[in-house]
Write a protein that binds this DNA or RNA. Structure first.
Length: 106
DNA sequence: AGCATGACGATCG
DNA sequence: GCGATCGCCATGC
């Protein structure tokens, strides 16, 4: 990786609990970039070849905005449903599965 | 150095 | 509730 910021993003993603999801903004804030949510997504895209649960990171609205980056657009959702995550239409039921990055990252 | 781009987020009409 | 806009800031050309 080129920046430490990216490494930290990966570390946080790796700690997301099974069956839970967090947001780009939450991670960005945790890393000191409250308004750098885009950078988080950028970092994930750059490291999509790593073994990390990127599918557990969604935008604030629970949308799988990164599904296009997976082999197939439906793959991301399949992984999430396999973890017991429920959907409302095409979005994740945030009230049940969202967990702020600050909660699990120590 | 300048400009366009992006797995976002908040606001506004 | 939805689309248009703007702000954010690292990357890449």
């Amino acid at each position: 990786m080129k920046t430490e910021f990216w490494e930290r993003v990966y570390q946080v993603v790796a700690l997301i609990p099974y069956g839970r999801v967090t947001t780009y903004g939450s991670i960005a804030k945790l890393l000191g970039m409250a308004s750098g949510a885009r950078m988080v997504g950028y970092a994930l895209r750059a490291g999509k070849d790593m073994d990390l649960p990127f599918h557990r990171v969604v935008n604030r609205n629970g949308e799988l905005t990164g599904k296009m980056q997976f082999p197939t657009p439906s793959f991301m959702r399949e992984l999430l449903e396999a973890e017991g995550i429920s959907f409302i239409g095409d979005k994740i039921d945030m009230s049940l599965h969202f967990i702020d990055a600050e909660v699990f990252y120590l």
